[in-house]
Amino acid sequence: MDFIISTLKIVLPAGTPLLLGTLGEIYSERSGVLNLGVEGMMIMGAVSAFGTTMATGNVWLGIMAACLVGGGMALIHGLLSITFRANQIVSGLALTIFGVGLSALIGRAYVGLPLPAKIRASPLPVLEDIPVIGEVLFKQDALVYLSLFLLTPLFWFVLFKTKWGISLRAVGEKPKTANGAGVNVYLVRYLAVFIGGLMAGMGGAYLSLAYTPAWSEGMTVGSGWIVIALTIFALWKPERAVWGAYLFGGVKVLQYRLQPLGISPNLLNMLPFILTMTVVVLVSAQEKIKRKVGAPAALGIPYVKEER
């Protein structure tokens, strides 16, 4: 029992940067724009959060800066892939390469410096005393609470229960029809991509301010790519993203908890990707399944507004 509680307690923070990024990427992909720039936006978010917190001593300003920078970078992708209808894969990859390089350049001055303020665990009074659940859920930091209790339900609600959510999904399914129904396809896509950037930036901020609070080059070490796998694994549903993120986080945690039993960490490391590949194969194999799980039909296809 102790083993389970102590394991679950460290699973949540491990999954949080993935959850934040995945929520955003779900919106972007739901609108029909694949953004492979998550790694780049995330690491730019990490360095901006670090730099802003260094300068101001305030982690919340750091998080805001990370969101804005992530969103700003996403708009570059939007400009290229929505307005100029460039290949989304190429544009996204370029964004990642650009972000990793630029963050290294900006971050050179921050290497080896401790932060004046970090995001610390803030146990919730009363709730933390609930046996088991309190230990696992309510002794975490603010961003764990924010992502789990506020953002995930909000993203789900907006996507499935609001008019704008319907427009967003319509734009990613049949943009032509959506346009016919009076939806501004470009605007909706831009917004969705921007939200994707905000969230990736926040995920990066979580890494550089809370999870591994220091700056060094390439510190996201592939988290952005896991986000992209996770988006598919979650079948583009925010409520599934939670489980996916914690499952992926949990597998990472177990690598080290189970190592003394002789279970190879490399084997466990593959598990999330095997699961994702299974989902990808299932989703791509049959059009019927694809329709059913809700894969955006227009994903990756630039929209060209027709002349009337």
């Binding site: 083993f3 102590s6 394991t7 460290i10 491990a14 890494l207 999870y211 591994t212 220091a214 060094s216 390439g218 510190m219 070490v221 988290s223 990472k252 945690v253 690598q255 080290y256 908890r257 190592q259 960490p265 490399n266």
Partner: peptide, 21 residues
Amino acid sequence: RWLFAWYDPSKARLAAEALIA
């Protein structure tokens, strides 16, 4: 605990927390 990485802050945290647990 082995990380199988020279540099990976997230893995380092996970390994540290596993040992502490």
